[in-house]
Design a binder for these strands. Structure first.
Lengths: 246, 246
DNA sequence: CATTAATATGTCATAACGACACAATGAAAA
DNA sequence: TTTTCATTGTGTCGTTATGACATATTAATG
């Protein structure tokens, strides 16, 4: 396999994959072979492949799911994103073959994507250069390679921005969920508490939720009603967004 | 000059430069040599240059101003953005030298930036491949090369999005301006009319304007007061943004 | 069956919003 | 000089949205 033949030079994609589980926002990370460092799932872009499609491919390979919410959020193009010492260690640790040395020593720019996935649907699988693929809580991110911490930070900013623009949740929650679960998702993404009662009033006013007749039994207390997103109205709000300031 | 030596392969930047004049939103465009088509100002990225710096450089070269508002808004990475027939015509029209043929026939991805500039400060100058550099009203965009129309469309979306997030205007208006001029700027960007009185109330409530003691005389009617942006408070709002929904 | 802890719903004072009325002003016309 | 007129400056008013908080309801527990 000749990287130079196959891939667009000096270009990669990285996918910050968000999931929501145990009331925590998590990202899918790769544990690098023979290293203590972790990485955001990424890959190269084939010469005859849309950049977006490369991101979709990476996502599919790491999670085994398709058709999920995926958006480009930033291009990371600093000249010193990588340096030779990083590639030195990759070669030393036998993470990459020596004949691929010159490919990895290129200057790379990378396109950041963030994905919102339903936690339970994901089957994590590592890639060539990693030994494990795991969900990691955002509150507990380990040491990451290169500028991957910054990539995650920017992805979170983009996600927060998306939250203020339109609805979020259909891609992160199971089909049926309680109002508390939805609110906790928002609280987790925003990093702040929201008033339970006012949240419900406002969320319902958007008209994107269907209140189901079921309740979630089995909890220790009063059984909360279940809700689901109204596909049609949810998608309308996705496009039009919430109240514009102007 | 050897492009392959100098520049990062398969990568360009394009800058959608917005200006506001005669109550119209305009973009700075280049008229291609020996062609009826126009283009958004762009350039390549030097091998040892941040992508952002390449955009700054392009901007400086076309407008002769620096330190202006410039933000990356999207990477255009479709595999068929360009095609051979386009390069054929470039060579035929002697826009590019024949020995540079192979450089231009690469697959290119391009990073879109949008800039907000004060119209009167700009001194437009064409580049190697163009014969003119002019302001063109957004309402009257001519035939553009490649996907440049889409690039402008996306830039406008990004600008509109910026408008709902925080203050806009310091970079597009002269230091002193009337409330009507500011409102017209907003109306032009949004493409809709805004109530004169409610706009003023809301804009003042942000606390980013200083009302000056001067009025703009010389108009045909009552002389309107002049305002300027309060640098400190404007910048605060730029970072924090306006009212969040949540 | 009472207790408990969480859910469901409502209230209330205040702020924000959209629509609109009317007075003030300064250049231009009479 | 006086009147006209378009535009600016400011205010009002009814409605809706918001934040803070009170109270009733309910499923599981002991």
């Amino acid at each position: 396999m000749d990287y130079f033949e196959l891939y667009h030079p000096g270009l990669s994609v990285d996918c910050v994959i968000f999931g929501f589980h145990d009331n925590e926002l998590k990202v899918l990370l790769l544990k690098m072979k023979n290293s203590k460092q972790w990485a955001v799932p990424g890959g190269f872009v084939k010469k005859q492949e849309d950049v977006d499609d490369a991101a979709i491919r990476v996502l599919k390979e790491r999670t085994n799911i398709e058709d999920i919410y995926l958006r480009q959020f930033h291009l990371f193009g600093q000249k010193n994103r990588s340096d030779d010492s990083y590639v030195d260690s990759l070669v030393q640790d036998h993470v990459i073959r020596e004949d691929m040395d010159s490919w990895f020593r290129q200057r790379f720019i990378t396109v950041g994507y963030f994905a919102l996935v339903e936690f339970s649907k994901v089957t994590p699988s590592p890639d060539q250069n990693s030994e494990r693929c795991e969900w990691v809580p955002l509150t507990n991110i380990p040491d990451l390679i290169l500028d991957h911490q910054e990539i995650i930070n920017e992805a979170l900013k983009a996600l927060r921005n998306k939250l203020r623009f339109g609805p979020v949740g259909k891609n992160l929650l199971p089909p049926k969920f309680t109002m508390t679960e939805l609110r906790t998702l928002y609280e987790t993404i925003l990093g702040e508490e929201l008033d339970r009662r006012n949240f419900q009033r406002k969320m319902l006013s958007f008209g994107i939720l269907d209140k189901l007749d079921e309740t979630r039994k089995g909890g220790a207390h009063k059984a909360p009603f279940l809700y689901s997103f109204n596909e049609e109205k949810y998608n309308q709000k996705l496009i039009k967004g919430f109240d514009t300031i102007w």
